[in-house]
Amino acid sequence: MISSDVIRGYNDTLILYMLLDGESYGYEISKNIRQLTQEKYIMKETTLYSAFTRLEKNGYIESFFQDESLGKRRTYYRITRLGLAYYKEKCEEWKVTQEVVNQFIREW
């Protein structure tokens, strides 16, 4: 289990990645992140929804309602063109970050 502090700067990237292949909603995204990381990272509910708020405010994702069974109305999210550009930017940033940090990692 990694701590939420370490990954803080990349929560948005994780969520955008989950939206690359199509629209999704809150719980599905958090479940997929959990499965993809083999439960090494579990995104807290509040982290997820504050990220949605931030991403939508910046225009990286957009939300829309979709009616579910039993009269539930669920909010779905899809990635925007701006969001895709931001995602690519973050990927580049991560490569550099990884290179930098790796300089200081000694294998024991």
Partner: peptide
């Protein structure tokens, strides 16, 4: 336990 911290949300909003 997986809910998190409500202040995280209110700060964002």
């Amino acid at each position: 336990s997986e809910f998190g911290n409500i202040e995280e949300l209110t700060a964002e909003l």
